[in-house]
Design a protein around this nucleic acid. Structure first.
Lengths: 111, 111
DNA sequence: CAGAATCCGACAAGATACTG
DNA sequence: CAGTATCTTGTCGGATTCTG
């Protein structure tokens, strides 16, 4: 095959494609803020909203939906009135926490 | 007047603001691809362009300019004809490499 | 060769009002 | 309380053409 393979990839997926996927997962103006917020606690929709001043409802709902779809956040609706919905970071979601940690170091450097 | 709080003042910056800055620095469809490409070598404009099929000239130029402005990439123009311009990741730019490494692990998880 | 200058479409994001 | 529904604005990225 290719003898000059320099990347240490376990699969034959090109590294740039993996990076792209990673960017896809973590990018967006608010996504990491939300994830960081859910780092160690389960929160209700309203709590998240209040904790992130500046985000619009539409964007927050949309982001939460995406996070659930990506399988990194679990959503639990209690069939109550008034409604009560809780969000928590699951196991898969926890894999991105190191990114936040490393990234905040970068953030400091470029501050 | 100004007491001795001049130097280490990035302490009480809220974490979300730091994360935002970090996201700012690394986000974009192509940015990390470019940085990864410059990881260990100096490249000319044309080399970068050829190495990243799919990126438009405008976007590439724009990204490179931003990377230079952010102070993570050094640009060196040789006053020659035909033009010759080289880009290389400087010290500050190297601080984002860990992000790429951690992020590609995330990328694999969500692949 | 390295880029600058336009033009354009798609979609991300915001503001506001409304609802079960 | 936890969202929907609309409308508007802003930003990203791409294609093409031109120039020192």
């Amino acid at each position: 095959m290719t003898p000059e393979l320099q990347e240490t990839e376990k699969e034959n997926v090109p590294i740039e494609q993996i990076i792209k996927k990673g960017v896809d997962v973590i990018c967006g103006k608010w996504r990491l803020i939300i994830i960081h917020l859910l780092r160690d606690k389960t929160l209700r929709y309203g709590e998240i909203k209040r904790a992130i001043p500046g985000i619009s409802e539409k964007v927050l709902v949309h982001e939460l939906k995406q996070l659930v779809e990506l399988g990194m956040v679990d959503k639990q609706s209690f069939g109550e009135v008034p409604p009560r919905v809780e969000y928590r970071l699951n196991e898969k979601g926890h894999t991105v926490l190191p990114v936040i940690d490393v990234l905040s170091q970068v953030g400091r450097v470029f501050m």
